[in-house]
Design a binder for these strands. Sequence first.
RNA 1: GGUUGAGUAGCUCAGUUGGAUAGAGCAACAGCCUUCUAAGCUGUGGGUCAAGGGUUCGAAUCCCUUCUCAAUCACCA
Length: 596
Amino acid sequence: MTLEEEITQAIIAAAKKLYGQEPDAAGIQLQATRKEFEGDLTYVVFPLLKMSHKKPEDTANEIGAELKNMVPAITDFNVIKGFLNLCISKSNWVEVLNSIAADANYGCKQATDDSPLYMVEYSSPNTNKPLHLGHVRNNLLGHSLCQILKANGLRVVKTNIVNDRGIHICKSMLAWKLFGNGETPESTGKKGDHLVGDYYVRFDQEYRKQVKELMETKNLNEDDAKKQAPLILEAQKMLEKWEAADPEVRALWKKMNDWVYAGFGETYKRLGISFDKIYYESQTYLDGKAKVNEGLEKGIFYKRPDGSVWADLKDAGLDEKLLLRADGTSVYMTQDIGTAQQRFHDYNISKMIYVVGNEQNYHFQVLSILLDRLGFKWGKDLVHFSYGMVELPEGKMKSREGTVVDADDLMDEMIKTAKETSSDKLKDYAPAEVDNIARICGLGALKYFILKIDPRKNMMFNPKESIDFNGNTGPFIQYTYARICSVLRKAAEAGIDIPAELNGSYEIAERESTLIQNLASYGQVVKQAGEDFSPALIANYAYELAKAYNQFYHDFSILKEENNEMKTFRLVLSREVAKIIKSAMNLLGIEVPERM
RNA sequence: GGUUGAGUAGCUCAGUUGGAUAGAGCAACAGCCUUCUAAGCUGUGGGUCAAGGGUUCGAAUCCCUUCUCAAUCACCA
């Protein structure tokens, strides 16, 4: 039983004794006492007034006196208005620290074979353009979410759906065929995804030229010109050939997709993310079509005179939704139906989570309803982990207007800046170690910058101001870790033995017990982050912890402390802070360096 | 127009499910390195929590109205 639970029980017992009624345990909240008041834990007594029929101060005093008698760890209490501040004994805090030290995975749970299986889809790139800042947010959130779910004792399958077919892919294929002169990643030295992306842009440029020309020469309006431009017609023909499995088109498709996958692979590796199972839309869209046709036969969907298939969702307060075009080809929704079916066939999934931007809210609302109507019992329970857009000072990112922040460029930039920042301090180190530290810090700054923000919100990214390395940042937390490592190294050099567990009595200071209290709350934070799907909670916790440690570090000597008992205590405390920082950062997918 | 989300310091963001005098960082200014890593620590200034009403011991938080912004409501994915 934790101290909080013990006190909660005591409050219930005290209320019963004093007022003859038992308050609801769920309604009893203990919070850390604000630092301007004396005490460690605070209980707000206002809810008890209905049963006590006394003033807040009197009620708090009565309860406080009872608690002090019942709970040995409570040494004293004070009352301010309706707030009952409880002081916890020093020895209790040392015990708490010992319990943290005894558990290498403190705050995290381990999954067993019976644990529920969660499947998390994230990343979900198109194969016609390189990853940009928006994808980075998606990838980081997805990876961190998986880490957090695992830390809550769940089994997790990380999955990715690659959008590898459709008209947009044909556009870059066509442009490469027409203008590429046989260029390859090898011949140009370009990453495959960038090379293919360039041809996607090229298609758009040439296409727009043709549209403009048609409007001028044949006096067409824009819509008609867009439909009649030779390039788009040829791309459509290519898509038809692809669907008919034309060997030449398929070979080109495979070649270019492989270039892109190699490029994505590099970016993923650098970002530190991975997948357990990858799905490709080219392999699931036929299932989706089959399922839609099945729904059509059962009368769940209906066909219009032109041959297109629709779902009527007006009774659910939504509109009608297209599922198959008149020519029989599939749309986004069709593919997602097929993909979902395959996944639930492949795995015994208890929860399916889609990490996809909030622009898709409507899509997932519809998907859930459609799957439910198609008879999948899990359809209703799909979770769309919806996150906000990344905005630039000029507004939204647009590939065609060149206002995207490329993922690879961004990482290069961050690592370069980190290297400049650390070059003075790391003069004595081997170049490879300097590079590795710059990589860890640069990526740490980027990842933390993105993950500390509430996922739901749109976030602002200003490339000119770039990302900070001071203050509430990844490197700040990494620095705190490296600092502790340095102290522990020096302790080892001096031959000081740091025990696994403390015994004895220690006169610890307020700042030290606060730090222990901070450490102790890690488990609660991990749990909350798991329930809320919120890496931001972990990020903010890690910052608070690092800040609290730095204040402690500034005010107290560790190795220079003359009292050996206290020196040992502070070393253990430091070691445990480092452990929890490393664990929390791991949940965010951020590495921590031992020196920087 | 409908739906969903958001609006907190000059800027970027927190705010533990309704608790004490609304907090950090950046930017500005002023201090702290012969002593365990100054990517650190301390201090100063900066707020009508979009506006108005309601619920109650107590509201940035819950409810209603209004305003502003974003996304979406496509035979694009």
